[in-house]
Amino acid sequence: MLDRPQGRAVRAVTRPRRMRGFTLIEAVVVVAIMGIMLAVGLPSMSDWLLGRKALAAAVFYQDGFALARNTAIAHNSHSRLVLTENAANGKMDWRVDICFPTSGVPCNGDAGTWSSATADADGDPDPDQVFRSIGRSAEAMPGARDLSLAVSPSGATEVYFTPLGWVDTTVAPRLARIDLAPSLTRAHAFAPLAVVLTLAGIAAVCDPAAAAHDVRGCPP
Score class of each variant (00 low, 15 high):
residue 40 V to D: 05
residue 131 F to Y: 15
residue 21 G to D: 01
residue 199 L to A: 12
residue 76 N to C: 00
residue 88 A to D: 14
residue 99 C to I: 06
residue 170 T to V: 11
residue 177 R to D: 15
residue 46 S to H: 13
residue 62 Q to Y: 09
residue 196 V to S: 13
residue 14 T to Y: 15
residue 109 G to E: 07
residue 17 R to A: 13
residue 39 A to C: 03
residue 80 R to I: 01
residue 4 R to D: 11
residue 75 H to N: 14
residue 141 M to H: 10
residue 178 I to Q: 06
residue 140 A to M: 10
residue 209 A to Q: 14
residue 117 A to C: 03
residue 180 L to S: 04
residue 204 A to R: 14
residue 52 R to L: 14
residue 93 D to W: 06
residue 164 L to I: 00
residue 75 H to Q: 13
residue 153 P to Q: 08
residue 186 R to K: 15
residue 75 H to C: 02
residue 25 I to Y: 01
residue 7 G to L: 11
residue 11 R to D: 11
residue 8 R to M: 14
residue 98 I to R: 00
residue 64 G to V: 07
residue 201 G to D: 03
residue 65 F to P: 06
residue 81 L to F: 06
residue 49 L to G: 04
residue 38 L to M: 15
residue 14 T to A: 12
residue 24 L to M: 09
residue 189 A to F: 03
residue 104 G to C: 05
residue 195 V to N: 03
residue 14 T to N: 11
residue 159 V to T: 09
residue 158 E to Y: 00
residue 132 R to T: 09
residue 81 L to Q: 04
residue 180 L to H: 06
residue 12 A to P: 07
residue 126 D to Q: 12
residue 72 A to E: 06
residue 139 E to Y: 11
residue 50 L to M: 10
residue 144 A to N: 12
residue 65 F to H: 06
residue 171 V to W: 07
residue 142 P to C: 04
residue 144 A to M: 08
residue 189 A to R: 00
residue 187 A to Y: 01
residue 207 D to K: 04
residue 174 R to N: 10
residue 118 T to R: 03
residue 30 V to I: 08
residue 52 R to S: 13
residue 89 N to M: 02
residue 203 A to S: 12
residue 19 M to Q: 13
residue 182 P to V: 05
